[in-house]
Design a protein around this nucleic acid. Structure first.
Lengths: 205, 205
DNA sequence: TCAATTGGGGACGCAGGCGTCTCTTAATCA
DNA sequence: TGATTAAGAGACGCCTGCGTCCCCAATTGA
């Protein structure tokens, strides 16, 4: 709501710095207003610039959003790698807590909310939603599947019938919480999800 | 897309009949365009009427949508009661299949998609979303909880630590499917959810 | 230090959608 | 059957937001 830039005598930005400010503004607007209600004036104002620099880079609103998303997804700004291959310490429970916790915190961040807004636009803009699914959702699910398979190999849990399906249980519960309550679950709530739902499905009891 | 009313010489409707046609049009538009992009001209056109009858009943778009939602939720047009108290036949699995199946088919219907669109507007219009949660989501969760408790009483499953949380597992998986694939799961997919996720969490093995 | 770029700011025309209003005509009721 | 009410159709003014364009100033590089 407030000016993102308090410094009136701020130096005039250009190039990559300005571009990043614009992307941040896109994410912020997207997360507050959604895609349909997002408007160029607001993005320019929040980035502390005019509309011309926006249209100099992208030809319209759709391209601008796609550009911001693409950049965020390809540079891992949204999927922070969690030190890449997670540290195989503490066993399955610890790994589940880390992965679901990171999912929840992503959902709280501006880029995360922006991605969510795009998935909600699935029917109107399938290509936007698909990009998010492919670059954001799938990798996380794959990482969860890997964690589960490693636990099976360690003999920690019996092999599940469908790793694909089981890997979705945790994320589904996190998502459900967001949809029902309007915000991602806390660490304590994630612990309940892990201990009372995910681990039991996996056969730890 | 096509005219909902092929009959050119159709008699002029009024009162309750017309009102229902308008509500149907609201749901259809809401499910296709979402709340933000819904516009009065389209609703009027789809209902085969003019804007005047709309504004004669409601003072603006928001009230019109709220009105349609309220009516649908209060008359059970979206929550079809499933012969009210489900028929306690076939045990827990059968009941889960019925409840999740009905959830999936609701999500496929126009009113169901409309409700979904409103939940997605949670941040912009909390009162709309809350109505859906209270009148649509909560009753279904309550019904699931009842089914689980009955199964416990029958000795079919051990008492879970948190019925509240467990009751959300099935719906969460159905929702997750919708979000990831853009459509509700089929009966076969629901069967997998029930057999490989929900029943195992409940301790049937 | 001067020329070339690019940013900040905003005016402009256009399109679409809101909510009002008018006009004609069908349905309803006394 | 005549009077009354409300429907169908759409014109209208207004506002908002898109995308273009212009001006001036700050930054950069030769």
């Amino acid at each position: 709501m407030v000016e993102d830039l308090a410094d009136q005598t701020r130096t005039r930005r250009r190039g990559a710095v300005l571009e990043q400010a614009i992307r941040d503004a896109v994410f912020a607007e997207l997360s507050e207003s959604g895609y349909a209600a997002l408007n160029m004036e607001a993005v320019a104002a929040r980035a502390g610039t005019g509309k011309a620099p926006l249209y100099r880079r992208w030809s319209n609103k759709r391209d601008m959003v796609v550009g911001a998303i693409d950049q965020a997804l390809s540079t891992g700004a949204v999927l922070p790698e969690e030190d890449d291959q997670s540290p195989e310490t503490g066993g399955l429970r610890a790994e589940l807590m880390i992965l679901l916790g990171s999912m929840a915190s992503t959902m709280r961040s501006a880029p995360g909310r922006a991605m969510h807004a795009l998935i909600e636009e699935r029917h109107r803009h399938p290509e936007l939603a698909q990009a998010v699914i492919t670059h954001l959702i799938q990798p996380r699910l794959a990482r969860l599947a890997v964690a589960i398979r490693r636990a099976v190999n360690r003999g920690e849990i019996p092999p599940p019938v469908s790793v694909e399906l089981i890997a979705r249980v945790g994320p589904a519960m996190v998502l459900q919480h967001e949809l029902e309550h309007g915000q991602a679950p806390t660490t304590a709530e994630i612990a309940d999800i892990v201990d009372l739902v995910v681990l039991p499905v996996l056969g730890t009891r």
